[in-house]
């Protein structure tokens, strides 16, 4: 059953981050991808006991470092100086990715160029001639995390949908996305297709009109 929020406009990125944070289970081990997904951290309450993982070798990552706290040996995956939360642990890269692939990381939140109706993810490479491919930890996260949440706008700047029947960009992972959080709607991807959980500023029929993906 879709909840339609018609008394408001689309979510801004701060509101979207808050919606995602609300859906992260208490005590979960979570990796927040580079860029907008890092905003989710601002909406996780301390009581929730969520432990943040950064793939460059740390569990218990704290907030961004300021002033005297800045230490170039303590950075996140986006190479931004961060702090230690109490109970933090450091480990090397092989361990860091083993904990992902091994199914120990509960949730990761990633940005995307496209997500397909089967949960295929494209977020690493536009495939354009001359573009330098750079994958980082995106494929490892997409494949390894138990749940992959995507945070994106539903439509590209030119208005084309990013939730699509088939990805046209090179894939990051196959059938790996479980939830898609966007400015105008949140979606659950499962065996039965795409289920719309909530819409923001748009009705379900109006949303369906703009997407080629059948919505349930």
């Amino acid at each position: 059953m879709t909840i339609e929020h018609l008394d408001r406009g689309p979510l801004d990125k701060i509101e979207l981050a808050a919606v995602i944070a609300r859906d992260i289970p208490q005590g979960a081990y979570v990796n927040l991808g580079i860029g907008q997904p890092t905003l989710v951290a601002d909406h996780l309450s301390e009581d929730a006991g969520v432990v943040l993982h950064t793939e460059n070798g740390m569990l218990g990552m704290g907030r961004a470092a300021v002033g005297d706290e800045i230490d170039q040996d303590l950075i996140n995956a986006g190479k931004i100086p961060v702090t230690e939360a109490p109970g933090a642990a450091y480990f090397h890269h092989a361990d860091s990715f083993a904990m992902m692939r091994g199914g120990h990381l509960d949730v990761c939140v990633l940005g995307a160029f496209q997500v397909s109706q089967r949960g295929d993810l494209a977020n690493w490479h536009t495939g354009e001639p001359g573009a330098i491919p750079a994958v980082g930890g995106a494929m490892d996260l997409a494949t390894g995390a138990r749940q992959v949440f995507v945070m994106m706008t539903l439509f590209a700047k030119d208005g084309t949908p990013k939730l699509v029947p088939e990805c046209t960009y090179p894939l990051t992972g196959v059938g790996c996305v479980s939830r898609v959080y966007t400015d105008v709607g949140t979606f659950q991807i499962g065996r039965d297709g795409v289920l719309v959980l909530e819409t923001y500023g748009v009705s379900l029929p109006a949303l369906q009109e703009r997407l080629a993906v059948p919505l349930g």
Partner: peptide, 24 residues
């Protein structure tokens, strides 16, 4: 992929001939 890069070196240092990895 970053984790595969690390694991390929781990394998190299641990005498593993090759490994099957889900990433990619």
């Amino acid at each position: 992929p970053q984790g595969t890069l690390a694991e390929r070196m781990r394998a190299g240092g641990a005498g593993i001939g090759a490994f099957y990895c889900p990433t990619g």
